[in-house]
Design a protein around this nucleic acid. Structure first.
Lengths: 273, 273
DNA sequence: GAGTGGTCTAGACCACCGG
DNA sequence: CGGTGGTCTAGACCACTCG
């Protein structure tokens, strides 16, 4: 018989089976690694590799020095990225375009989730290559700097996503609310429109990557967890100039990120409500 | 002084520095793990953890029993998902909507990439929950089955993405090309339109998850590599019925997945050309 | 057959958490 | 304080690839 799969894979599969059958219920703490090791009569490192597999699959979350816990299934928060926010089709309930602050809370409420967000932190930082390119900053500028507004967003009391918006320095001088550490209630789109930049289009990009240390801390996870999803939106104004770069980091599983095109049934829009 | 970061993190950072400075050039093989271990005077496991970090960051790719190699930077293949494929706006060069076969090769060519794809493999399989839901199969149906068409896609001779399309069994009986193991030259959208299903809209969803064993094999990677990006498109016809589910698996880094809304400058559309 | 990474052991010490 | 997971060692054997 032999079972040529590595031990740690077998143990991971065993544990996953126990989770699926409810022997280990959502929220339960796994037995300590030492106990698991003696149960299967393997060394501690082998158990670590097994638990690692479960972590990568999103079945458990490990908090260092406390324990590993079976992930609670959550009603995912549906994030519809192509809100009809470019003109007349601004129908309530048709997505919120990943907007700042209040738009986020309103959309969560519609989906019967409680949500809140931190006050933004604002910094002027040296621009990185990606930000220079996205914002179309001329390359002859010696030490390009940008304004970064960051917010932490929570759904159901738990960390949901991190959002960073980048603006050219000149823009923040014209539109000073950008450098205040206060949420822009009307939304940045409306606010910047009143300062001469109408958002007429945007380009969205998606990537998956391992979380940074900061992100791990925010999401409360240990190393070797899931990858995060990075969504970058470059917004263009009526002159075809990029004027905002918004980067949002999501933990997979708790969010459902989608885009809708053309005609789809009403129920599809309403999903998640 | 002390440097309290774990050794494996320091070593990973060292190696990454060597890659960035060109000491280790793209395509180069890393020294064998044993050699690295003696160089830093640490045990083999510590080196493994260090190399692991690089793998997760996409800086090296490891082929078991051969070695670890510095990732070659690639001109990413730009995949614009909201091709104007819903009507009159079908402008060449404006994305290919993740289409099957020939559309994929044509888009690659426009971006000056060589591309090819495998003949599709076609199977009738027991439908999984996600497929039943997406295709709107009635829940009173006892043993729901679906047709799955799968293609492997290559760019520049290297594995690029895996695409699986799912259809209801009844549809494949009406539209028999779906169950032939031959690429549908005109594209499934056009083909199914001539069989009474006009694609009038779609819903796209994104996720990140660890690769399955099959995907690891296809991409030629070892375990503990990057997460993959999963893109699911549910297509709706003129009656608001879902009639196709297409799931595409991308390796991050080699592809740039994007969505465009509203008016953006021409250069944006042309990026990647 | 030599070289590679993958798995595994049986220990050890540490840092952080909670009561 | 005891309990937890995180790091680390110094070995071992295996499976696979390639010349």
């Amino acid at each position: 018989m032999a079972e040529m799969r590595p031990k740690y894979m077998r143990i991971a599969a065993d544990l996953q089976g126990q989770i699926e059958e409810g022997v280990l219920a959502p929220g339960d703490q796994l037995p300590p690694e030492k106990e698991l090791a003696s149960h299967w009569d393997v060394s501690a490192n082998t158990i670590k590799k097994a638990v690692n597999e479960l972590r990568k699959g999103g079945h458990v979350e490990t908090v260092p020095q406390k324990g590993s816990f079976v992930t609670k299934p959550v009603q995912p928060f549906v994030i519809t990225l192509n809100h009809m926010d470019l003109g007349e089709d601004d129908v309530p309930g048709r997505g919120f375009g990943g907007g700042e602050g209040k738009a986020f809370v309103a959309e969560a409420k519609r989906q019967k989730h409680e949500a809140h967000f931190s006050e933004p932190t604002v910094e002027v930082i040296d621009a990185k290559e990606a930000q220079i390119k996205a914002l179309g900053i001329p390359s002859n500028q010696p030490h390009p700097q940008v304004v970064r507004r960051s917010q932490e967003r929570f759904v159901g009391g738990k960390p949901n996503s991190l959002q960073h918006s980048y603006f050219r320095l000149e823009l923040a001088i014209k539109a000073q609310a950008l450098i205040k550490t206060v949420d822009i209630g009307e939304g940045t789109v409306a606010y910047l429109q009143s300062h001469g930049h109408v958002q007429t289009g945007y380009e969205d990009e998606f990537d998956a990557r391992p979380p940074t240390a900061e992100e791990l801390k925010f999401f409360g996870l240990s190393k070797d967890s899931l990858a995060v999803i990075e969504h970058r939106r470059t917004a263009y104004d009526q002159n075809g100039e990029p004027f905002r770069l918004t980067v949002t980091i999501y933990k997979p599983g708790t969010n459902k990120i989608r885009f809708i095109a053309g005609e789809v049934p009403h129920e599809v829009w309403e999903r998640g409500s």
